[in-house]
Computed example of a mutant assay.
Amino acid sequence: MGTSEKRATGGATATGDVDRTDPDYRAWLKDAVRKVQADANRSADTHLLRFPLPEDWGIDLYLKDESTHPTGSLKHRLARSLFLYGLCNGWIRPGKPVIEASSGSTAVSEAYFAKLIGVPFVAVMPLTTSAEKIRLIEFHGGQCHFVDDSRRMYEESSALAERTGGHYMDQFTYAERATDWRGNNNIAESIYQQLRLERYPEPAWIVATAGTGGTSATIARYVHYMQYDTLICVPDPDNSCFFDGWTRGDPGATSDRGSRIEGIGRPRMEPSFVPGAIDRMMKVPDAASVAAVRALDTVVGRKAGGSTGTGLWSALKIVGEMLAEGRRGSVVTLLCDPGDRYLDKYYSDAWLAEQGLDIAPYTAAIERFLATGEWTG
């Protein structure tokens, strides 16, 4: 009786053009994985910055500064995980493009890793993406493919992968599963290691904004796995459906407009957003996000992107609640990316006027809180 045999080809978006048993392909794959892993070894851990609060409050506020990664944002961790996941699954192949739906920072980081292993990269993004992010993607060798409606990014990315024989990375589906949430120097493990010698080494709260939802899922899962008492809060900006979907328990929640806070907020409930893992959500007005990120520049001397402001506003609110209840402890939020990518947006009064955003009441609320300890935001 005869036997039939078929060598392993294909993958998520593969077209059968690679023989997985070919020694040349195996050598390329080993080298690509080595290069991506070596990047982690070259990158020192990111800093944990203190946001100054009055000592007698008995509360410490920290920002995990992810802007110091080689590509300048939190998304460097995600891109590294996604590339390792795609390579080890046989989805990323020599000479074939990697394609991503991204409003900016993920695309910058993925362009970096694509260049590192020598494959083309195409970012599918809205026309409203900041000029600086476009420049950075192209600086790392990527191409930008624009859509006039951010809700079309998914289908256009998939169609582009189909036309080119490339791989659609799909961060919004694979972010939570590509990251090792049990440890292995992920962002959660790093936070706890850096807090070991602080007066409150186990934070009362960690605040993590959500774009894909992968970071909040990683942190929350790690907290549960390690049996910590830390609670996880996810703030959501205007024009995003995550808050409504979470509060209503509605996985089909949508928004008919795109987020003005680049990198976070989505028009649909993304597969990588894990509502059951987190403990609290806050809806944060975009004007409050901008006021908070400008306050960070004033108080700490660091410019950051709008997503950092969304998280900082929520962290300050939590600090205010703890202070009012007489509780002590620490709170951690994220400095997601540098503000020089957004000088024409969140640091531009002309842009605020164009968007109809008045940050004055929120700026006053932050200033009053830091001076008196009374949160009225």
Rank of each mutant, 00 (worst) to 15 (best):
W246T: 09
W246Q: 03
W246K: 02
W246I: 00
T247Y: 00
T247M: 15
D250P: 05
D250C: 00
G252K: 06
G252P: 00
G252A: 13
A253Q: 03
A253F: 06
T254D: 11
S255D: 15
S255W: 10
D256T: 13
D256A: 10
D256E: 14
D256Q: 14
R257I: 06
S259L: 03
R260F: 09
R260P: 00
R260T: 04
E262A: 05
E262L: 07
G263Q: 13
G263H: 05
G263E: 08
I264Y: 06
G265L: 08
G265F: 02
P267M: 07
P267F: 14
P267Q: 12
R268S: 12
M269V: 15
M269K: 06
M269H: 09
P271N: 09
P271S: 12
P271H: 13
F273G: 04
V274R: 14
P275T: 13
G276K: 05
I278R: 11
I278P: 09
I278V: 15
R280D: 08
R280N: 04
M281P: 01
M281K: 08
M281W: 00
M281N: 01
M281E: 00
M281C: 12
D286I: 02
A287T: 11
V290Y: 05
A291Q: 09
A291S: 06
V293W: 04
V293M: 07
R294P: 02
A295I: 00
A295G: 00
A295M: 13
D297W: 08
T298E: 14
T298C: 04
T298R: 15
V299D: 00
V300Y: 02
V300T: 09
V300C: 13
G301D: 10
R302V: 14
R302P: 00
K303F: 07
A304D: 05
G305A: 09
G306F: 03
G306R: 06
S307G: 08
S307T: 12
T308H: 02
G309T: 11
G309K: 03
G309P: 02
G309H: 05
T310I: 11
T310Y: 06
L312V: 09
S314F: 05
A315Y: 10
A315V: 11
L316W: 06
V319L: 00
V319P: 03
G320A: 05
E321L: 03
E321T: 08
L323W: 15
L323Q: 15
A324C: 06
A324N: 07
A324E: 15
G326M: 01
R327W: 10
G329M: 04
S330F: 07
S330P: 11
V331S: 06
V331G: 01
V332S: 11
V332L: 08
T333E: 05
L334A: 06
L334Q: 12
L334T: 14
C336E: 04
G339Q: 07
